[in-house]
Design a protein around this nucleic acid. Structure first.
Lengths: 362, 362
DNA sequence: CCGGATGGATCAAGCGTTTTACCAAACTTT
DNA sequence: AAAGTTTGGTAAAACGCTTGATCCATCCGG
């Protein structure tokens, strides 16, 4: 619950700020005032505003009402509306990393676009992983009678569902419950993504392709590896465990993995993520190797700031954050069918850039 | 205004999703029900809940009410509360680049923390620069009777104030009105930042310091240059316009500027932003120069993904987005004093990393 | 033993909408 | 011309909560 502010008189008189604005912030115009101005009942005004189909209102009256609305600058009070209807036009979005990653922004973007399309606004809170804040946030959303809640994480992972969350209609976004079927969820299709990433390399003519996986366990770790295997198999190349390295999934990790990688005598490498690829770029460069000629590289995540601007630009696979947000909303609103017991999987589209050239298998 | 969804019966029956949850989503418990359960009037319950100081309630009664609340799982209806009080505990935040930059996230973070502290929740909308969406968003916020609106941009710039915005109490965040005094605003202190950036280099012992400014006009362009001049002056170094280059403010621009830079015969360079520095790193490397020994580099923005992970890590100056958001809220709520007619300026703290070593002026 | 405090709790009037039931007048029908 | 049927519109009851006005016992001092 949001704590009430202690209204000590400390604050400067806020009235001062009113002065400047033309249309002042006096008491807002109400339905009743519009009704009086138009010489009709509030019911009529309400009917006109909401364009009720089966309400019979004369054209002349309708016009008077509209005029009055315009003249008085009437704005409906959404709170009153909500009170009557019992549920607001809000969809809650609790996110754990708005501040720490650019990814959350895309989830927000997608969710908002989709929500807006259906007449809903987003009520967002950033928890930065703080469990207490998270609970307060959900409570707040509950008190505002949100239509439902999207519970999202900035990286794909299992999560347990906070108790409070169960009081609402909810959907997990970019995360899922360990117990299958416990909740609707939407996640990226890591395996397909991993396969796409690998295929970029294979299409480039490479046969010996290394994969630098992450050291830390995550659905992405397993999925992206699986995709790698799938792609190889489909290409008739047998999987060689020796070509799979592991490193901490950041620039540092990628950099440090260079040495090991070079021992593998490969012509191409698929990195667990773009940050790793960025580090690897440095490592390769220090070894006097050029990309893509000496080594073709693909990443994963399509982290704009990095991938699009490395030298050469990095081929990678895009995490569908926008779509995750949008799909989450659709699932919540029941516009998309929820599959039986496993999360909805969203495709990770490949983004090809110059880090993979054409390789002649010689 | 948010368009009402046409309720065609297309959606799958949403009732199905209720089944799983333990505490079902039936009609919520109301104050009245709590009152009945506790054998008191609704007034009493309300008084207890809100801990009204001058309300005299017996301890035993108070206890009964609390018990009832717990047992029934009562949740106040924030809409009803708001309706009574006339204004909600919402602060609107309209942002133009949640999806396109990591910066917006920090503004959100700061604003939310500060808002929360005072019992307010954030009602965020991402406009991605869409003027129509922006208007709709503000309208929506107005209808929800927000306490006020934070109008924020992802990069520091002048902006004109949408008409609708004037209907609310508002503060500009990371932007300002061209007409001085037209609106309260909070922006980063570019000049101080530019000075700090330059000083990092000067402290490193460098005397010939180049500045690669942006080509595109912006408050940052002027401010950061001013800071550069200020720092030189304070160090007793005369300003040499020949040491100021210009380039498009991204990686590509930084890279391309390398050649020109090397003609200047300097030992250090201050880049307009981190992205530029990133490109410059590549350019310098290609010329066989090492950082910081052959060339010390500082950036601006402290864009985490880049600055902290370049090789070597980049010294830079931090854009205080978190603080901007927080200060915006404080200004809005009247907790901070608004200065006469110019925006509040927030400091850009220096972040020193390894891209600047110690240089002996020999 | 009375007038006045005071403690404890209730009454009831909103807050701004929506919506159902109902009404009066004006047309149609037969 | 009586009986329906439209047409155009209104009254008023919610929705869940807050709050100033009241009310009723006590309890206290004198």
């Amino acid at each position: 619950m949001i704590s009430q502010e202690k209204n000590s008189g400390s604050a400067a008189t806020p009235g001062a700020s009113d002065a400047s604005a033309g249309s002042s912030r006096a008491r807002p115009v109400t339905l009743r005032e519009v009704a009086e101005a138009a010489g009709v009942s509030t019911a009529t005004v309400s009917l006109v505003i909401n364009k009720k189909k089966n309400a019979r209102i004369g054209d002349e009256t309708r016009q008077r009402v509209h005029d009055a609305i315009r003249q008085l600058g009437y704005r409906p009070n959404a709170m009153a509306k909500t009170l009557v209807s019992g549920t607001s036009r809000f969809i809650g979005l609790v996110a754990d990393g708005v501040a720490t990653t650019p990814f959350a922004g895309q989830i927000i973007h997608g969710a908002q676009d989709e929500a807006w399309k259906h007449g809903y606004a987003l009520l967002i809170t950033n928890t930065e992983g703080n469990r207490d804040l998270e609970k307060d946030a959900i409570t707040m959303m509950l008190e505002y009678k949100v239509r439902g809640i999207l519970y999202s994480t900035w990286f794909h992972r299992p999560t347990d569902i906070p108790d409070t969350l169960r009081e609402a209609d909810f959907v997990l976004v970019n995360c899922f419950s360990p117990k299958p079927g416990a909740a609707r969820a939407v996640v990226p299709d890591e395996a397909q993504g991993g396969r796409s990433a690998t295929e970029i390399l294979l299409r480039g003519g490479h046969r010996r392709v290394a994969f630098i996986n992450a050291t830390i366990p995550a659905p992405a770790k397993d999925g992206r590896l699986q995709g790698y295997k799938d792609a190889l198999e489909a290409a008739g190349i047998s999987f060689d465990p020796g070509l799979v390295l592991e490193a901490y999934p950041d620039q540092e990790g990628g950099y440090r993995a260079t040495e090991e990688l070079l021992k593998r005598n490969v012509t191409a490498v698929y990195c667990y993520n773009d940050r790793m690829a960025m580090g690897l770029y440095d490592g390769l460069r220090e070894n006097g190797l050029s990309i893509p000629d000496d080594m073709a590289v693909v990443g994963f995540d399509n982290q704009e700031v990095i991938a699009a601007h490395l030298r050469p630009p990095l081929s990678t696979v895009s995490l569908p954050h926008y779509e995750l947000g949008a799909a989450g909303v659709r699932l919540l609103l029941g516009l998309d069918e929820a599959p039986g017991d496993s999360p909805v999987k969203i495709a990770c589209p490949a983004v090809e850039r110059a880090s993979v050239g054409v390789h002649s298998t010689a």
